[in-house]
Design a protein around this nucleic acid. Structure first.
Length: 430
RNA sequence: CGGGGCGUGGCGCAGCCUGGUAGCGCGCUUGUUUUGGGUACAAGAGGCCCCCGGUUCGAAUCCGGGCGCCCCGACCA
């Protein structure tokens, strides 16, 4: 993308409403604009990040056999009356009526809907288990939206739902999902820690929250340093991984147990702050029974499926990643989710040599590069590249360009390399 | 939902107390300048002062009502 022609409205000064780092930086980097309290438009760079995160989430869901589908955002009130949650959910649910005065709602979650869909299309125990997910916009009418995208009212979430014949099956999916989540966060490039959690609105008796470590996190977290060295990607034994991950100590301040804490060797104790970016639940037959969903078993008896639901806050992750990775100058994107892998900074726009060199780099890098081809001072280009946080900056100035050299800067470390075009490309693409 | 604050060009703000019809910085446009860390000078463009009503000869300013947004707390993917 050529910056001179892009809709990337960066801001030199911070809008008054933004208090927290990720909110400030997302506005200043031109990723989002607020359209109403807790409701944001995602501009091109913001959307690119959202899409990259979604894609990683999608790949990891597919890898555990979850099937992607897409349910509507608007749901019928009647559906929620079946589970009894229409009255239970309270003011967080946005309720609307259509022209015929039919009661509808903008979905805050989809347990009822997926249960109805699976109920109406599976009749035999042979049709189970089922595991399905979608990545879809949700709406929860928060009393007090804040922190930008971290607590918006409209947010993008990956939610998946499982239906199993028995408890063992349900717990197996739960464990598999736990592993897939740890892989997902690791691939994104952040440390996430699973912690035992309450089940809240969803109900049930087994649940974990996933927290990203960030100094500005909303909850205090206590954990064993073993999490920092954890590797989920190479894991093949799901059960062993689950046992290991759930026995290492980790708790939010609400559930912190000082007795257990004191038994952990002192050099492994870590205290920090966390942002919740996901939660998984096993809740048994809560919805299948309430909504009359049973399949016929091998012996002709009804079996009410054991269910679970699993969420990752995709839009919240964008803010959470920034909270975890930024400095004075701006965002520091992990390679995997950066809107652009590299920025090409033309320090002398209009100079035949630097222009030609930049065009060559841009042609080689394609869509994953942002070419700063504006008529701007070098300083402005540096400042904006740091703000937007591209993992690599390829700096093309008249000094080096004359002998085919460019400067490559790594945003995360500040390292700089004087390289030939080929070497720079190899490094960026490698 | 309790408490506090704010609403004035795209962004950040001043002006309001002590009514006289709007100003500063940044950004934007044009020219010159500068050319490796948000350059300097000059000339421009751009405002229903959140909305409605009231007081007044006259309202951004005072009064009433409404709407929007932010912060703290309780609540939450």
């Amino acid at each position: 993308m050529r910056l001179s022609k892009s809709l990337i409205p960066t801001l030199k000064e911070t809008p008054a409403e933004a208090q927290i780092a990720s909110h400030r930086l997302m506005l200043r980097a031109g990723m989002i604009r607020q359209m109403a309290s807790g409701i944001y438009a995602w501009l091109p760079t913001g959307l690119r990040v959202l899409s990259k995160i979604s894609q990683i989430v999608r790949e990891e869901q597919d890898a555990i056999g979850a099937q992607e589908l897409l349910m509507p955002t608007i749901q019928s009130a009647d559906l929620w009356r079946e589970s009894g949650r229409y009255d239970a959910y309270g003011k967080e649910m946005l309720r609307i009526t259509d022209r015929h005065d039919r009661e509808l709602l903008y979905g805050p979650t989809n347990e009822e809907m997926i249960t109805a869909i699976v109920r109406d299309s599976t009749k035999s125990y042979r049709d189970l288990p089922q595991l399905a997910y979608h990545i879809q916009w949700k709406f929860r009418d928060e009393v007090r939206p804040r922190f930008g995208v971290l607590r918006g009212r409209e947010f993008l979430m990956k939610d998946s739902y499982s239906f199993d014949l028995d408890y063992e099956g349900a717990v197996a999916v739960y464990k598999k999902t736990m592993l897939s989540y740890m892989r997902t966060f690791q691939r994104i490039g952040i440390t996430a820690i699973p912690m035992r959690a309450d089940t809240g609105q969803i109900g049930g008796d087994l649940s974990h929250e996933f927290h990203i470590l960030a100094p500005t996190g909303e909850s205090g977290v206590f954990y064993d340093a073993a999490f920092e060295a954890g590797d989920a990607i190479g894991v093949t034994d799901v059960d062993a991984f689950y046992d290991q991950v759930t026995t290492i100590y980790a708790a939010t301040d609400e559930k912190h147990d000082t007795a257990v804490w004191d038994e952990i060797p002192e050099d492994r104790r870590r205290e920090g702050r966390g942002i919740e970016v996901g939660q998984i639940f096993y809740f048994g037959k809560k919805y299948s029974e309430a909504m009359g969903f049973a399949v016929t078993g091998p012996d002709g008896q009804k079996i009410y499926p054991e269910m679970g639901s699993y969420g990752i806050g995709v839009s919240r992750l964008v803010g959470a990643i920034i909270e975890a990775r930024h400095d004075e100058a701006g965002i520091i994107w992990p390679d995997a989710v950066a809107p652009f892998r590299a920025a090409i900074l033309n320090l002398r726009q209009g100079d035949a040599v630097t222009d030609a060199l930049c065009e060559r780099l841009y042609a080689a890098l394609g869509a994953d590069a942002l070419y700063d081809d504006r008529e701007e001072r070098a300083g402005a280009k540096f400042a904006e590249a740091d703000l937007m946080g591209h993992p690599w900056q390829i700096i093309v100035g008249p000094r080096g360009a004359a002998n085919g050299q460019v400067e490559l800067k790594r945003r995360a470390t500040g390292e700089r390399f004087e390289l030939s075009v080929e070497e720079a490309l190899a490094k960026v693409q490698g």
